[in-house]
Amino acid sequence: MVVILKRDVKGTGRAGDVVKVNDGYARNMLIPKGYAIEATKGNIRSLEKVKEKQAEEEAQQRAAASEKAEQLKKAQVTIVTKSGEGGRLFGSITSKDIADAVKEQTGISVDKKKIKLDQPIKNLGTFHVEIKLYYDINAEITVTVTD
């Protein structure tokens, strides 16, 4: 029997794949649990429409991420905080602090989980921070920490 998978099934395929499986496996496991639907002409047409719509949405998201990356490449963010002797900070600058500063100073909203910091910033100075905007689109901003 040929079925269209609605979600990933280990050993069978990924969501959206049209696969040929044993009749019993399809009737007793995949279809009743909602993992797959039978591959009729109508279902295949609707799957193609869904894939087209997903491709359009992905293209829009990629374009928006590229535009945001171009804006962020020009951005220089300054964070003012208290420091002690030798330029050591009281506490540290985390990805949340950087995301808040980017939003405040540039107006561009960035998810704190997308900011790549190897370690929290604990000294005064200038740092280059990478922000992952999309699968393969990254932007690097300059963060200056002063007191």
Rank of each mutant, 00 (worst) to 15 (best):
N28Y: 07
D100R: 11
T40P: 01
V19F: 00
A36D: 03
G91D: 06
A64D: 13
I44Q: 03
A36I: 02
L117E: 14
V2K: 05
I141C: 11
D23H: 04
K113H: 10
V129R: 12
Q71D: 12
V110D: 15
I37Y: 00
V110H: 13
K20L: 03
E52L: 06
S92T: 06
V19M: 00
A99C: 12
L72M: 09
I79T: 11
T40C: 02
N22V: 05
H128P: 11
V2M: 01
K10H: 12
S109W: 13
D136W: 13
T94N: 09
Q60V: 14
K10P: 09
S46F: 03
K6T: 05
K53Y: 09
K41V: 02
Y135K: 13
R45Y: 02
V19A: 03
R14I: 02
I115S: 15
I121L: 12
I137Y: 13
A63Y: 12
I31V: 00
K96I: 12
Y35K: 05
N138F: 07
K114I: 15
I137F: 13
A59Y: 14
Q119N: 09
V9Q: 11
A101V: 06
K74Y: 06
V21F: 01
V77M: 07
G125V: 03
M29D: 14
V143Q: 05
V2I: 03
V50H: 02
Y135E: 15
G91P: 09
E48P: 03
E38V: 06
N22E: 10
A36R: 00
K33E: 11
E48H: 01
Y135I: 15
K20M: 04
L133Q: 13
K116I: 14
I137L: 15
K73M: 10
E104P: 08
G86T: 02
D111K: 15
Y25K: 08
T94G: 08
V18W: 02
V3P: 02
L89T: 05
K96P: 09
K49H: 03
K6N: 09
G87N: 03
G11T: 01
I108M: 05
Y135G: 14
I141F: 11
D111R: 14
S83R: 07
K114C: 14
G24W: 08
Q60Y: 15
V143L: 08
Y35G: 06
A36M: 01
L47C: 00
E56M: 11
K20F: 05
N28A: 04
Q60F: 14
T81V: 12
A39W: 01
G91A: 05
D17Y: 05
Q76Y: 06
K33T: 10
I141Y: 09
V50F: 01
E67P: 13
D100P: 10
V143F: 08
G13E: 05
I131Y: 04
G34V: 00
S83G: 07
Q54K: 04
K51N: 01
I115A: 15
A36H: 01
T78A: 08
L5I: 04
S66H: 15
I131E: 04
D136R: 11
V143S: 04
P32L: 07
G13Q: 03
A59N: 13
